[in-house]
Design a protein around this nucleic acid. Structure first.
Length: 267
DNA sequence: AATGGGACCTGCGCGC
DNA sequence: TGCGCGCAGGTCCCAT
């Protein structure tokens, strides 16, 4: 699923590829992903505009445009972005750039979204978003847990608590830190929280250098897969051996999400 | 505040 | 081969 490292990858590549270029034409083979306005309004508002910058907030991509507008792109579960000339079966919206490249917003399940905002207009999703783990010190990370009572895994995945961590990296970080995913967050010692912080950052940075994880539909903007898959230790590895202790990886459900963990080394 | 369920979607793997 | 079913998951929304 596109989480922080995947969205960071797209942001870096897209910035390089479309910033400073103009959007010539917009087409929407499937306008369902356009939220907040109709396709014709969407088209009218952005055709001809220059792309100023591309940035990331949590799992959201922000494309800053001329005219004090920005385009929020969210890939949700099964979205990706490709820049190419060819057609793509799952293209929901495409933007033709002035250099001839075509930005495809692709999504097998069509749950992703594109939303236009004007500068100053409130964006509820962003306003409620927690801090980015890459911008936190260990001390700040540990401080987030004060007064929180939930189970650790859903808490890590709660975007209002921490922005960018989803089901893959939450499972991997808890495995790395040897923490059971159902542990109450307020039960973790300071030492465990610090270990969790170090693990989470190590793994997010590593995944970014690998250009993300392609377990499902995620692709880089060139269409290439992300290479972090071969480093996954527990995610979708239930029934296989724990790479650390050899026990059998178990799968359970926590907060209505599939959760794999090692029953021996995660306590 | 936390938890559980449903909704949105479609491809896939399973059992029959 | 083919059908129906349940699962996968990010976010929002509602109920408890």
């Amino acid at each position: 699923m596109p989480e922080l490292p995947e969205v960071e990858t797209i942001k870096n590549q897209l910035k390089h590829r479309i910033a400073g270029r103009r959007i010539l034409r917009v087409r929407a083979p499937d306008p369902r992903v356009i939220k907040g306005c109709t396709f014709s309004e969407f088209r009218t508002r952005i055709e001809g505009l220059l792309v100023r910058n591309v940035s990331r907030r949590g799992k959201a991509l922000l494309v800053a445009l001329d005219g004090a507008q920005f385009l929020l792109m969210h890939l949700r579960i099964s979205g990706w972005v490709e820049v190419s000339r060819g057609e793509e079966k799952y293209t929901r919206v495409q933007m033709e750039m002035e250099d001839g490249g075509i930005l495809h917003f692709c999504d097998t399940r069509a749950l992703g979204e594109l939303r236009l905002f004007r500068r100053g207009q409130p964006v509820p999703f962003l306003a409620k978003m927690g801090p980015d783990p890459l911008a936190l010190s260990a001390r700040e990370f540990c401080g987030l847990f004060a007064g929180r009572k939930g189970r650790i895994k859903p808490l890590l995945m709660n975007q209002r608590f921490l922005a960018g961590v989803g089901n893959i990296y939450a499972q991997e970080a808890l495995f790395c830190a040897k923490v059971h995913p159902a542990r109450p967050a307020d039960d973790l010692s300071g030492r465990e929280l610090k270990r969790l912080y170090r693990c989470l950052l190590k793994l997010l940075r590593h995944a970014i250098t690998c250009r993300g994880t392609s377990v499902d539909t995620f692709r880089q903007i060139s269409g290439e897969k992300g290479r972090y898959v071969c480093f996954l230790k527990v995610y979708r590895r239930q029934g296989k051996e724990c790479p650390r202790c050899g026990a059998r990886i178990r799968q359970t459900r926590i907060g209505a999400r599939g959760t794999a963990f090692c029953p021996r080394c995660q306590q």
